Simulated assay, not measured.
Amino acid sequence: MASKLLISDVSVAQGRIPRDRRFQTKVWARVRQPGRAGLTARVSNISRTGCLLECMAALDTDLPLTLKIENSVLLSGTIVWSRVGASGCQFDHRLDDQVLTQLVWPVQSRDIQK
C-alpha cells in the first residue's frame, strides 16, 4: 500500500521549513521596543509563530519587543524585517490554541455573519 506524500513532507525533504497557517485579523496592539516610545499598530495577520504589524513607522529589527493586543494579550518577540508601513514579528514562544483562538475567532465570526 502506497503512502500519501504531503506538501509539508516535500518542504522538509527539500530543506525548507513549512510555514504556519496565517489568519487574517483586525486587531490593534500597543508595541514597545527598548529606547523607543510606544506606538499603536494593526495586527493584520497572525500565526502561531509571528504576526504582520502595520504601522506608520519602521520598527527596529533584531530588537526585542512587547505587544499588548486588544488590551488583554501580552506577547514578546523580535522584529525580523521592517519597512515603513509594515513589519514582521517573530514571537519568542509559539501561541497555544487558546490564545490563537482568542485573537482570531472574533474576526472569523464577523466574516461568517456577512
Rank of each mutant, 00 (worst) to 15 (best):
M1E: 11
M1V: 13
A2P: 13
L6R: 15
I7W: 08
V10C: 03
V10M: 14
V10A: 13
A13G: 13
Q14G: 04
Q14D: 04
R16P: 01
R16N: 11
R19T: 09
R21S: 08
R22A: 09
F23D: 01
F23N: 07
F23G: 01
F23M: 09
Q24Y: 10
Q24K: 14
T25K: 09
V27G: 03
V27D: 12
W28H: 10
R30L: 08
V31Q: 05
V31I: 08
V31G: 05
V31F: 05
Q33T: 02
G35W: 01
R36V: 04
A37R: 04
A37C: 06
A37F: 08
A37Y: 03
G38W: 13
G38N: 14
G38Q: 15
A41D: 03
R42N: 14
R42V: 07
V43G: 00
V43R: 00
N45I: 04
N45K: 07
I46R: 00
S47N: 02
T49A: 07
G50V: 01
C51P: 02
C51R: 02
L52E: 08
E54F: 12
E54P: 11
C55E: 04
C55W: 08
M56Q: 10
M56G: 15
M56V: 05
A58M: 10
A58V: 02
T61S: 12
L63W: 07
L63Q: 10
L63C: 02
P64W: 05
P64S: 08
L65N: 00
T66N: 11
T66A: 06
K68A: 14
K68C: 08
K68R: 13
I69S: 00
I69M: 02
N71Q: 11
L74V: 09
L74C: 04
L74A: 08
L74H: 12
L75M: 09
S76L: 03
T78F: 09
T78S: 11
I79V: 15
I79N: 02
V80N: 07
W81F: 09
W81V: 08
S82C: 07
S82T: 06
S82K: 04
V84R: 11
V84A: 12
V84P: 05
S87M: 02
G88P: 03
G88W: 06
C89Y: 00
D92N: 14
H93K: 10
R94K: 14
L95P: 00
D96E: 05
D97H: 11
D97K: 10
D97P: 02
Q102S: 12
L103F: 03
V104T: 15
V104F: 06
W105I: 07
P106Y: 00
V107R: 15
Q108F: 09
S109A: 07
S109N: 10
D111K: 10
Q113R: 15
Q113T: 14
Q113N: 06
K114E: 08
